[in-house]
Design a protein around this nucleic acid. Structure first.
Lengths: 359, 359
DNA sequence: ACGAATTTTGCAAAGGTTTGCACTGTTTGC
DNA sequence: GCAAACAGTGCAAACCTTTGCAAAATTCGT
């Protein structure tokens, strides 16, 4: 049994079959609470209470039942329990925007936020379900939310789905979204003041004497649009400063090529770059290095997010910090309140400039 | 420079309350299939079949029922459905090793593998559940597996839990583990030939004329132990070469400090470093840069994994490539077979040397 | 027009738990 | 010594869907 035929990159598959099942404790497997009840000579209800550690049941009986359960390796079926309890303990985490989900899932920012969310949720005893987003489906969110599988849902980013989100939020309370907060939104969001952040970034470059700025990012996403608006605010307030927008998507695969292409366009006319994210900034940094440009002397680069990665670049990245951990905490706190029925307000966090070496 | 002191960065929460719920489509909300049945004037069974698009039901009736469902935004309860079907469509993804789960969740390697797994699973119509690992609990895996919530489980890494995994694997077929494959294992694993990889790494350094090597990594994890063993193989086969082991944990927070401390110990005696992972290698690179060491002339550094990050460092990282995407594919393929009842063998992939700039 | 074949539909069980209510024994209080 | 309080247990409904089987309705062949 070696080697399946034509698999990518798979070489010399070896076999260590898992036969020879040992012992199995001799006990027959118990399938459900009723069987266990029969064995223990009590009713299913009592077993349920005993296993849940309820105080209503006689300590001796409880211990006996738990012993039997342990001995047979029995654990009550969660699906049935959840159905009955109407509470699943599962929170859905979703990235909107269907096409090419991989790109998004492995995006460092998403991962970072996701990690913190996972922390918070695990801490509060919840499980996390990464839900399937069917590309091009208008009802993606309804499907997730109405499935009856979730106690609540967390969206990472609004993408261009604000209308869908608002519609669902109108009748589904336990929903919290990472993103930009706008007066017209009807859903609860948590995020940074992106416009202020964009302004901070551009102001830093201007303060460093840079005048011909470029913005690398895709303004179709609301957050990015706000960051751009902020940068423009700053530029408009400084005499002689200009800002050129260079659309740059977030997808990381061809990002390097895109940015390289950007430089063919803007070339050395530019002396300061506001990147819409740290990932963009990092890649920009590398390309500048390849082209032999001195950072920050010839061109300064400023990022957005302050991911852990930002300290690992050469030169280390000057960036606009978003408190991702705090944001995750706020999202989960809001969600918990909403699960309890409270209609919580949105949260806007103030970003701050973190000065390192690149600008 | 800009830091707000304690209370981490959170400022000025503003409010946009989500009141004024509009319209709600006038329709009362349907709670279950029986209610819908009453409205449509048919039996619940028929509704179930209609909603599932079964051919046994009259096309007209089916269309009518679906129309009503759509109109009222009704979707059958998944929990009940899954309970009845005894099939959940959910795959559990778990990182063993309880303590400090955050560290692990945000580890770039885990994230990368997780991303690919998510891709594959989503592709095949499965949902993903990131399960809670209760620290210090011997029964963590039993709990997950016996919950009745999962069709199968994928573990990312064996950690030091091989015995637990083997025990569970003895009676639970749909379980596939990323990690090292050893003859004595009774569970199905997918992973690289870590020993071969370690050898490749050390051989490369030796071929570049390096002789005083150091290994940065924590050999308590089996994969790392194998990589170290491979490196030692290579060193033992080269005259005059030495290898010093410097335990370095994977946790990313204090990694930089650890590595800096490493250098105080080994100092300039070392001219080549085998890092147990790309993350360790990257951090090492940065610290070398800070100390003004020329890479690879004075000290060469070689990583392990070939994460996307490896191309973003300065200098770009020479590393041992694991086919993570291929591994994810193999894990999911194996799992699907096992869900279908086939006891698949383990898979061992051959790693390969990717030469860039750092060694 | 009538029985047979076929298509639709309904019934009720099953999937496995939790929990309000009722019931049986014990204690306790007086 | 008797009512009241209480601890422990059992019953059966509820959670909501799916599906095998039987019944009803329709279509078809002759």
């Amino acid at each position: 049994m070696t080697g399946t035929p034509d698999e990518p990159t798979k070489t010399g598959a070896e076999t260590y079959a898992a036969d020879a099942v040992p012992a199995e404790a001799g006990k027959r497997r118990i399938r459900n609470i009723t069987e266990l009840a029969r064995i223990a000579g009590v009713s299913p209800g009592t077993v349920s209470r005993a296993l849940a550690g309820k105080s209503l049941v006689n300590p001796q009986t409880r211990e006996r039942i738990q012993a039997i359960a342990r001995e047979h390796g029995f654990r009550p079926n969660q699906m049935a329990s959840k159905l009955r309890m109407q509470r699943t303990g599962v929170i859905g985490v979703v990235i909107p925007l269907g096409h090419d989900s991989r790109q998004h899932i492995s995006d460092p920012f998403f991962m970072s936020l996701f990690g913190y969310l996972a922390d918070e949720l695990t801490e509060s005893g919840h499980d996390i379900m990464l839900s399937r987003v069917i590309p091009g489906d208008v009802e993606w969110l309804d499907r997730i939310v109405d499935s009856g599988m979730l106690d609540g849902a967390l969206l990472i980013g609004q993408s261009d789905q604000t209308d869908v989100i608002d519609r669902v939020a109108d009748h589904y309370l336990p929903l919290v979204v990472w993103g930009t907060s706008r007066p017209e939104h009807r859903h609860c969001s948590v995020g940074s003041d992106n416009r202020a952040g964009g302004r901070l970034a551009a102001e830093r470059l201007i303060a460093q004497g840079k005048r011909r700025l470029a913005f690398f990012g895709d303004p179709r996403a609301p957050e990015i649009a706000d960051r751009l608006a902020g940068a423009r605010d700053a530029v408009d307030g400084a005499s002689g400063a200009t800002l050129e927008v260079v659309p740059t998507t977030l997808s990381s695969d061809d990002l390097a090529d895109q940015i390289a292409a950007n430089f063919s366009k803007v070339d050395r006319a530019v002396d300061g770059i506001v990147a819409a994210s740290d990932v963009i900034a990092m890649t920009t940094l590398r390309i500048l290095h390849e082209r032999g440009a001195q950072v920050p002397q010839e061109i300064a680069v400023i990022g957005f997010d302050d991911l852990p990665l930002a300290t690992r670049t050469v030169p280390q990245l000057t960036t606009i910090r978003q408190d991702i951990a705090g944001g995750a905490k706020a999202m989960v706190a809001s969600l918990m309140q909403r699960i309890a029925g409270v209609d919580t307000p949105s949260t806007v966090m103030q970003p701050e400039l973190v000065i390192r070496e690149s600008a």
